[in-house]
Amino acid sequence: MDTEANEVLIEARGLTRRYGPTVAVNRLDLTLRKGEILGLLGPNGAGKSTTMKMLTGNLAPSDGDVRIKGVSMREQPKLAKSSLGYLPEQPPVYPELTVDEYLGYCAGLHGVARKDLADALASAKRDCGLADVGHRLVGNLSKGYQQRVGIAQAIIHRPPVVILDEPTVGLDPIQIREIRTLIAELGRSHSVILSSHILPEIQAVCSRVMIIARGLVVYNEPMAATQGDASVIAGFKRAPQAVQLAGIDGVDGASPLGDDRFLVTPRKGADPREAIARAAAQNDWGLIELHAQQRTLEEIFVELTSGDLRAAA
């Protein structure tokens, strides 16, 4: 089982895509193992969608190759694609079909046998919360439901690899939460690649993050790596001086954020929250806010994608 859990499902080597003189994606390497959820981040036009199109065989790479479960997309596209489920930016739905008809068609396209069709349909609809709308026309559903139909289409044949391009665009906050839960569930039995602009979303569901800027991979780390150095936000009714906070045990420094709030940087490996609470109680600072704040993806993202020099490095 252990060796199976480490099975490499997607492997891309030196993936390059040129549109005339512009290089949309430049020598991108990507490895995805079973059970991983990879978040693909990047500013607009960074090459996220191009990368996903190449991974799913919708676009031929100018250079490099994609292997899905060890099968080359270039040499055996049909076999490689059979292990894939893909939701593009625009859900590829037919508005004139009902949800059941549409999903049945997708299942057939992906080679689901006729006898397994009813089961596949039922489980995909259950997973995506579509059980009640099976008989409705896709075109009459709201954008959020159409998006779910798009996701259902990508998982109906239970592919080992699911690739979702901005799956939560156009959804309301409750639907976004549901889709996130769904993606986390998918991540247990499938490998998922997910692209998004919404950083907290990636932070919430992904086990690994890849940031692309100008077609280059500028960051590729497990999610845990971004959570190493948490800082602490503290807010007070009667705020102390920053130096007083910096004197507390385990605190490396404190900088005021305005409104009597402070950003407290802890010493390596220390969690100063308890000490801050104690100090606040002793000195009657009127502690009203205290929480750890992870170094957010946003900070990493902005840092890596704003400066030209850094991206080129």
């Binding site: 799913t56 919708n58 596209p77 049909k78 059979s82 930016e89 859900p91 590829p92 396209l109």
Partner: peptide, 14 residues
Amino acid sequence: KTGSITLLFSAPVS
């Protein structure tokens, strides 16, 4: 135009 062609292009059909 509607992008549904992606369904066919990413399915295991030639």
